[in-house]
Design a protein around this nucleic acid. Structure first.
Lengths: 224, 224
DNA sequence: GGTGGGTGTCAAGGAACCGTCAAGAAACCC
DNA sequence: GGGTTTCTTGACGGTTCCTTGACACCCACC
């Protein structure tokens, strides 16, 4: 889960942001002062810091300068000041974006998504591992035991959908729709064939599946 | 030198931006249409694209969506539209920042600096070596065994994309898009011809490739 | 114990894809 | 302008992959 540190000294705004961000699935930390920002950021390593420039104890620029030497997440500044010079100073100090109050919540959320996306870890570390096999979603590479496993495009498409939803049951129709297209929602036979092929290539004991689970009458599930 | 692609269809603004950016030490490319943006971006790999959403031929969102699958630099949107919905759409399509016209030049420059700073690529090792051949990405030189290998520009472009993503599967369309340009995403025949040529020049046994691997129906992979 | 729906397994035909070759067109370089 | 390199295009055979159908199995229910 993405962790965001919200630094603001207005209780109402802080509360609104916390509720909204939590509802969007972020993990939220808060800090009411500049000193607290530095302390919480060091302790919790948030992926993004939403920083009000008008904190009571420290100048906002000083907070950014205190963070940047070691902090490599995104910093999005929130400020009531519209002066272009303030924006230039904050951005050049190391902020990634600058939003002026009052702001539209949807725009702020979109800017947060963009900032988080940018700071996302190296594009090739989307790896899912089990005791039996490893799947690298970015490189489209699968290894079982010590050697590579060769998957066909359809096998890969099916595996990818299941793995991107770990532990969750995916219905027959949804699976067919996502891998073969919406027109194939009745071709249940395909699923049987390809799930069997995946199991033969990935499961230690294909006849007793441990990771690619059948839910009779409903669909399949990837069990991490 | 940092290369910026400026996409706008107002000659005056384009001229002002070009002069200002050149004065600040940037290398500036320009593109008056969406199609030109895709073409120039593929050919020149700018570190940042400053994109007007109101280009005459393509919708701005479409341009962003056409870039993002393969382009990993920063995209800063410039737009006359203040509607929050437009901002959300552009940011979620993959833009990194959104500046509305009219804008202050100092603020824009600060935002560009922030965007470039973020996208600063990790200086990757410039030489890649395998048991069979060595590729120097900076010097554009390839040696196999003990003597140099001559590559045509297209062969080199293809090899470079594969080598910069070691172990990673690159899809047909992405390869075509990066080497020939986005308009060639259907020319699968080119890939067959040029991969075969690379293998003939680099692989110890071209009919049984060891480094330039085919993934049927998906793409190719450089295996270090 | 029989029945039927849902599932796993296997194999074969056909479609899609790939490697190879070669020749003409285009671009490039004296 | 001539010669060379490079790119594009098409055809062919071999390979991989998708689709399809037949059949066995398991389990719940009758």
């Amino acid at each position: 889960m993405t962790r965001i540190l919200v630094a603001d000294d207005e209780p109402q705004l802080l509360r609104a942001l916390r509720i909204t961000l939590r509802a969007r699935g972020y993990e939220v930390e808060t800090a009411p002062t500049g000193a607290a920002v530095l302390e919480v950021a060091a302790r919790r390593h948030p992926e993004l810091i939403l920083l009000d420039l008008g904190l009571p104890d420290l100048d906002g620029i000083e907070v950014i300068e205190g963070l940047r030497p070691w902090y490599d997440g995104s910093i999005v500044v929130l400020s009531a000041r519209h002066d272009p010079d303030d924006k230039v100073l904050a951005l050049d100090a190391g902020a990634d974006d600058y939003v002026t109050k009052p702001f539209g919540m949807e725009e702020l959320l979109a800017r947060l998504r963009a900032a988080v996306r940018r700071a996302a870890p190296a594009p090739d570390s989307v790896v899912v591992t089990t005791d039996a096999f490893t799947v690298d979603l970015a490189a489209k590479r699968v290894t079982a035991g010590d050697h590579d496993v060769r998957l066909t495009p359809t096998e890969w498409g099916l595996l990818e959908v299941l793995i991107r939803n770990p532990g969750r049951l995916i219905g027959h129709k949804q699976l067919l729709s996502e891998v073969w297209g919406p027109a194939y929602q009745q071709e249940f036979g395909y699923l049987r064939v390809y799930v069997a092929q995946l199991r033969r290539k990935l499961e230690p004991d294909p006849s007793r599946p441990r990771y690619l689970i059948t839910e009779a009458g409903m669909g399949y599930r990837f069990e991490p």
